[in-house]
Design a protein around this nucleic acid. Structure first.
Lengths: 220, 220
DNA sequence: GTCTATATGTAGATAGAC
DNA sequence: GTCTATCTACATATAGAC
């Protein structure tokens, strides 16, 4: 099976309001189901039912299934990338940044969205984890996530001109994995450390401490 | 869809040699495909073809698809758990352990198997990542992985009696995520830090440094 | 234990009426 | 843009001959 898709054809006229609503319902439904059950675990019929729409409409609005998946993944990736870059730019205007500040700009936007942005943002982390684990989506992951990641790795590298860039990249990849784990695997922390009191809001601070110290140590 | 399965029925007599070979071929084939394409992306027909066996035989030997998946995941989990526990016991006989030693006993067996144990062990990491990302397999993950993880979290907690166990558990979960990322996302490190020289064997050391410093820092 | 054949359901995609 | 209907392929599972 191939996951390539053709670019959208030129629209002949602006879509109607109803059409836009239908399209939005379909994208939202697809997002929920893809995040929950993955690409292969979700059928076009499931999506149509979840969106309360006929099956044919999903094809009509989204093209084929792979194209729909691509759009769903990219939509939130763009929002997220924008927030992260903005946070970094804003911080740099205030003065010189350090490793903690840079990592904070990367981690916090997602943690805030996962906490306050509605349940879809938590589900999206699972979708990202799913995409990251599956080699078939590698090129999609590279398009959606790597430009921002590269920007942050470069930023960190500029703080440590004598350190190996590869080690920094490795530390950054571990940090991203930790971020996804934080959002998707809260239950596991609960299961393993359940006796103690809840960490609540401090969770995010723990992750940041972990990643900052980890990257510093891994540069050797 | 339910993922429960009934216990194996009592065998009436020992299986023949040929039967055992067939069963092994099926399990190996299923493992390769599940790791590559996930549960829903793999059909029983794919597995039969990969194992060079008729479709009916897969059902005959493995029962249904969910049971087959369960067996495949559990098989290597047992091997891995055993090596990890053995490493820890051996180290404790030699004298008191510290955080680095405990984490080393957890991380290194898998890293060694991924490097020297054949390509299947690398693929298995993707399978584990896949299982971890999908809520439907949570109970399977708990059965296969949590007992060992709990043992190591307790071990670390005993080293830091005054630290919050929850924070230790969080740091441990981040570390596991980093371990899986190390094995499955080498390409990403390559893409993000590609300019520098390769890290080669030192990779594993970088991960260990990262996790040790990270956990120490996250205990606050 | 193995193989053939098939029962039964669902998949993605599209054609054509409105 | 929407809806109905349908095409073709493939899914899981099982029944019964050898």
């Amino acid at each position: 099976m191939e996951f390539e898709f053709t670019p959208e054809k030129q629209r002949l006229r602006a879509p109607s309001l109803r059409s836009l609503e239908t399209r939005a319902k379909i994208l939202d439904a697809a997002e929920r189901l893809f995040a929950e059950r993955g690409f292969d675990g979700t059928s076009m019929r499931d999506i149509a039912a979840e969106a309360e729409v006929r099956v044919g409409l999903v094809s009509h609005h989204a093209g084929n299934k792979a194209a729909l998946f691509h759009v769903v993944v990219a939509r939130r990736a763009d929002t997220l990338a924008q927030r992260r870059i903005e946070a970094l730019e804003a911080r740099k205007v205030q003065g010189p940044v350090d490793l903690r500040a840079v990592l904070d700009c990367f981690l916090t936007p997602y943690l805030e969205l996962a906490r306050d942005g509605g349940p879809q943002w938590m589900a999206y982390a699972r979708l990202v984890a799913y995409v990251s684990a599956d080699a078939r989506w590698r090129s999609l992951a590279m398009v959606c996530f790597d430009p921002t990641a590269q920007r942050f790795v470069d930023e960190i590298a500029s703080l440590y001109p004598r350190a190996s860039k590869r080690r920094i990249a490795a530390g950054f990849v571990y940090s991203v994995a930790g971020l996804l784990a934080q959002i998707t695997s809260g239950w596991r922390v609960e299961a393993l450390g359940g006796e103690g009191p809840r960490m609540r809001v401090a969770d995010d601070r723990v992750l940041l401490d972990f990643c900052v110290a980890g990257i510093e140590a891994s540069m050797g």
